[in-house]
Nucleic acid binder design. Structure first.
Lengths: 175, 175
DNA sequence: AGTGCCATGTAAATCGTTACATGATTGT
DNA sequence: ACAATCATGTAACGATTTACATGGCACT
């Protein structure tokens, strides 16, 4: 849904062609988001239609295949709007990472509120997992099957703890 | 792709209707996988067609709406086959969790190999992130924008470290 | 009689994946 | 001349999401 915003951020960092973005997505942002080149070309075309991007045709000699996309003011506004927007739970963790990168280029625009919101959400979820752990997984007397199910829950707990530890580290960076 | 195997596992734990599964997916497995009821109904119908499931029509009085699905031998075989299968990178972390739950019901069928494979994969990825950190993010002299980009990378690093810590905890459970 | 939850489904629109296709540029 | 890589796109298919639709059952 917000592959567009990831692309906008990437283009703000450096104006590029679709091909370059497809390769760039193997680095940095691409560690969290993967996108095929068709997805990228489609979204670039749409954003150009919407007036968020300008396609600069590199007319080198006879051919003018390569297009370098630049973010226009409307694109900047859209990205700024999105940063402040709550974002749906489930994908908002990944979205926050893009929001941080976007703020690195655009300056502070409300991502810290998103961070606070997500901290509350993850604290609630962690507490819920811990309650389940206490209820369903006594320290002793677990058979093998139960230990396996416990391991699955442990992953959930550790993931939440880890996320919160990262948030604590990251919070001071955002005013 | 393997919403089917998540459903098979859930149905082995307890034969259920589509509606019950849709709600159950808000608990346990549903902490990691979310699926809409249409997805669930579609896959249940397919798996029943394929002979993996039997739909028991609860004919209470005049109406026979509710169907309780039971896993058939072919379904058990398919799940066993899938547990041993490598699984595509990207979704294989989540898949492993389902494989653990599946083995809790079916007994050991090769998930430990998957765990070893993923440990190697995560170690490689962690090393790559750490290399990037050393190359691009010196301990001192970072401006605000760079600190934000560093925070994004830190999330990647911490996620890998956390995953590996979990794997170390979990390894002894699997022969 | 009405509200809310149980229970299943169809249909349309959008998104994502895979395959196919084309041609330019760069280096050997 | 040839291969590799740069660069963009169309088409088909399948999956997912969202909206719509239906009706039973339980409780008050």
């Amino acid at each position: 849904m917000s592959i567009q915003h990831a692309l906008l951020t990437s283009l703000l960092e450096k104006p590029s062609s679709g091909y370059e973005l497809a390769n760039r997505f193997d680095h940095s942002i691409g560690y969290f988001w993967q996108a095929t080149h068709q997805q990228i070309y489609r979204e670039l075309a749409r954003m150009a239609d919407a007036g968020w991007l300008l396609a600069e045709h590199d007319a080198t000699g006879t051919s003018r295949r390569k297009k370098t996309y630049h973010v226009l003011e409307a694109g900047r506004r859209e990205l700024a709007r999105w940063i402040a927007e709550p974002g749906d739970p489930g994908r908002s963790d990944q979205a926050l990472l893009i929001k941080l990168r976007a703020e690195a280029v655009l300056g502070p625009l409300g991502a810290s509120q998103e961070l606070h919101r997500l901290i509350a959400l993850h604290k609630t979820r962690l507490q819920m997992y811990r309650d389940i752990e206490q209820r369903d997984f006594p320290a002793a007397d677990m058979d093998h099957a139960q230990k396996l199910r416990h391991a699955v829950l442990r992953m959930g707990i550790k993931t939440e703890e880890n996320w919160l530890a990262w948030a604590k580290e990251t919070l001071p960076l955002m005013e």
